[in-house]
């Protein structure tokens, strides 16, 4: 979260407290605003490209895996991202055939970046999704019933949130063992408390709304009320937060890879690539620059969109 705030500051997004005006004409879906808002639209387009590409490329890799034909995974890429080391191509600067240059092993950096995308996308959506599911349900139930359950959840999440997320993730992934999935598990364990808190907070306001109280009068069971009224209404504001959070997950995931935890070579990973390239910086600037820029671009797009979504959902947007 801190990273997001810093980034937001760096790229000049701030909550403009002086400009007010709350009323957004009703009856119009959120997407309408997103499409008419340059900031959100740019974010949305980049994210859409990222997701579509990840789905296409990811499917090819999976199909390739089943057919025992790894080449399928790079049929859309300019070069084989997992090509065997080739000293002749080592550390070539960007050129027409190698747009982002090559790395020490002589592999095409652009191809490797594109090849790595699906893993990042999966990480972001899986971690946030699982965090919403587990954290969200726990937070909602705790917030709704209150009492010792709530107290216990608060203490546990307090403990989690007291430890910097990155350090906890590092510790956990070392504990679980290296590899992609262990990083995902570690990240989910780090991530759920935030969502538990978010949903709990939402639930605390929703549970006193008239429609929940009235449902109780109708004799509706608590579980039914939670699933019919509380959870669905708590989700909206969380969605905007989650949009911001996808970026943060990718950033953390890449940082872990940068530190050598996570996806293992020879598979490419943005953070790991940036880290490998760093030792050649600044002479071989492209080696670390392009992977880093990719991370930044994706993270910023999520911020651009998420930030606007928050404004729209909270009705703070001027139109």
């Amino acid at each position: 979260m801190k990273a997001v705030d810093l980034l937001k500051k760096a790229i000049g997004i701030r909550k403009d407290v002086d400009s007010f005006s709350k009323r957004v004409p009703e009856n119009v879906s959120i997407w309408y605003y997103v499409i008419h808002d340059p900031q959100a639209l740019i974010g949305l387009i980049i994210i859409a490209l990222f997701i579509v590409w990840s789905i296409v490329e990811g499917s090819l890799q999976i199909i390739g895996g089943y057919l025992k034909d790894p080449a399928l995974g790079w049929i859309l890429l300019p070069h084989n991202p997992l090509a065997p080391p080739n000293a002749a191509l080592s550390l070539k600067p960007p050129s027409l055939s190698y747009l982002f240059g090559t790395n020490l092993e002589g592999e095409d950096i652009l191809s490797r970046i594109l090849y790595a995308a699906p893993k990042d996308a999966t990480a972001a959506f899986l971690v946030v999704g699982l965090a919403i599911l587990f954290g969200g349900l726990l937070g909602t139930v705790a917030g709704y019933f209150g009492g010792w359950l709530d107290e216990a959840l608060m203490r546990i999440t307090d403990a989690f949130l007291a430890i910097p997320g990155l350090i906890l993730a590092i510790a956990l992934s070392i504990l679980i063992g290296p590899g992609y999935y262990s990083v995902l598990i570690a990240l989910t364990i780090v991530w759920w408390p935030i969502y538990a808190r978010l949903f709990r907070g939402q639930t605390l306001t929703i549970k006193y709304r008239g429609y929940v109280e009235v449902s109780r009068l109708f004799g509706e069971s608590s579980l039914k009320i939670i699933f019919k009224h509380v959870f669905p209404n708590a989700i909206d504001p969380v969605v905007a937060y989650a949009a911001l959070d996808f970026g943060t997950v990718i950033l953390t995931y890449s940082t872990l890879a940068f530190l050598g935890i996570g996806v293992q070579p020879p598979y490419p990973e943005w953070g790991a690539m940036a880290s490998n390239g760093l030792s050649f910086f600044p002479g071989v600037w492209w080696y670390t620059l392009f992977p880093s820029l990719t991370i930044l671009l994706v993270v910023i797009s999520f911020i651009l969109l998420g930030d606007r979504l928050q404004d729209i959902i909270s009705g703070r947007l001027t139109y």
Binding site: R209, G210, Y211, E213, V214, S215, L217, F218, G219, E220, K228, H229, P232, N233
Partner: peptide, 26 residues
């Protein structure tokens, strides 16, 4: 009971039919 602010006492995600029939569901 009927509350002051109908926007707060009607579930924004449900349509009017579902809102009004809710007391009869059980």
């Amino acid at each position: 009971i009927v509350y002051q602010n109908p926007l707060e006492s009607l579930d924004p995600r449900l349509n009017i039919n579902s809102i009004v029939e809710e007391p009869l569901l059980n």
